[in-house]
Design a protein around this nucleic acid. Sequence first.
RNA 1: CGGGGAGUAGCACAGACCGGUAGUGCGCAAGCUUUGGGUGCUUGAGAUCGCGGGUUCAAAUCCCGCCUCCCCGACCA
Length: 571
Amino acid sequence: MLFSRALIPTVKEAPQDAANASHVMLTRGGFIRRVGAGMYDYLPLGLRVLRKVESIVREEMDRAGALEILMPALLPAEYFKETGRWDRFGDTLFRLKDRKGSEFLLGPTHEEIVTDIARREIKSYRDMPKNLYQIQSKFRDEPRPRGGLLRCREFIMKDAYSFDADEAGAKASYEKMRVAYCRVFDRMGLTYRMVAADSGAMGGSTSAEFQVLADSGEDAIVACGACDYAANVEVATVKAPPAAAAGTQEPRAEVHTPKHGTIDEVTAFLGVTKDKMLKSLLYAAGDQVVMAVVRGDHDVNEILLARALGLSEVFLASEADVKKATGADVGFAGPVGFTGKLLVDRAASVVVNGVAGANKTDTHFKGVNRGRDFEGDVVDIRLAATGDICPKCEKGALQSYRGIEAGHIFILGTHYSEKMRALFSGEGQEQKPVVMGCYGIGVSRLVATAIEQHNDADGIRWPMSLAPYHVALVTLGKDQAVADAGKKLYDELWAMGVEVLWDDRDERPGVKFKDADLIGLPLRVTIGGKGLAGGNIELKPRTEPDPKKAEFVPVADAARVIAARVKSLLS
RNA sequence: CGGGGAGUAGCACAGACCGGUAGUGCGCAAGCUUUGGGUGCUUGAGAUCGCGGGUUCAAAUCCCGCCUCCCCGACCA
């Protein structure tokens, strides 16, 4: 592609609203333009990257034996009513009506529709396993679209669905997808972790997220430094602390702590460390108010807390509810004498001579010990953090990371097949629901995710497998010999299968170099009058910041050397 | 949905408090200049000041209503 004939509208200034690297660079580099909140144009460069992501995903799905199909994005409401998701999806669903007033939706995901295919076409255990996938636009009315392509209302997703005759078959299908996903992310040159995750509304028995590590990620994950344990912090647990040391228990004593309600204030006032504090938080859980106690240096994990209570969610109690439940102002709640349901984190349960609120305004207790001063149910309800010991190997220390969820795989079981009567005949003529799995990859999100992980101050550093073109060819000056050499190399490289973007514009060198860095093609070939007079062109990887370290390659060898370099970076 | 912020030329912004000829930089067009990291100079085109209403002789500016967008949080296969 000739730059002079392309549509690559680079701009110097970042859009005022962009807050992360990928949004800034995709916009500045002329890859995308915003059309509305969470809606983007893909300009030619952006579309080429999107297509590369799609190709890799498609190749790996096909390799894993999945079959590509395409379902409509516009869907009749009846399918979602059949499974109850028409109501359960709430405001996230884009709903619309046709001219006759019939209800429709724009598909946020396609379990119902693919299950409809299954119930019509899969009649026997002999028809399975099957895995159907599509790459398609999805629509979700997100409460808050953000981050450019990272969270859109219309986005492109690969969604795959497996159908098996039994749980063991489903596990095998799931495992195939896991391997395929690893290949996808490996080929894209991404650093990622497969983590245990909350199954959420899908209610599956087994699920894992593929988290691409990036400081700008929305998700917090922890991973063990010694074994393969990794989990979304939502569901991460930690090794149980040692049983209480048989230390001497001080008598419990009331202390006056006027206006000192926070952990920081109380520890400073009483001269104790945070791990001696019994942080007591009140939650609205269903129709009751429960108290959750964790150590002062720990935080409550609300998802674990909700699970421990058998609920889907809990909310921090209002100030009024706290006062009603404890009889004290916020900041002075504690387990001693609390009459409601009491949950105590494992680590907090073994604190000896702790400090806790006395359920009396401006008052705390010292010398609080579980077993003597209070009871409560001991559960794991705290957030894992860096330094905690791994729950799996019980040796390694956990490390916290930020991640971007780029893929999620589930075993769904028979949730949808039962509701929609997707039944098949087993070997003994019995009718059984198919066992399903579902597997998503955020294709358009990956375009942005790759940049979040691969960029520097000057712009993007595309991995070769995702770059819109393999090589940026920059010719300098108006010298005809340079232009001729550029044209020759350009033609040779394309003939060898190398995708070249030739900056043939009548621009000064600085402009071309800046744009090349911004667009971020992995290899840059420069042809200038001086170098050419010496019989050389220059070759520099985008990852090399120092232009002086460019490699000189004889003109005669250039095409061959460059093509070989591209090939090695692709494998 | 809660909190905060912003809508003025293609982009980034000033002007608003204190009403009176709509401005700057980048980009765009033309000319000269320059040519290995966003060259310098000159000239020019380009705006229903988000929308609707109100106050006023006069509204980008003051008042009322609405819309859109962004950030933090909640939310989120």
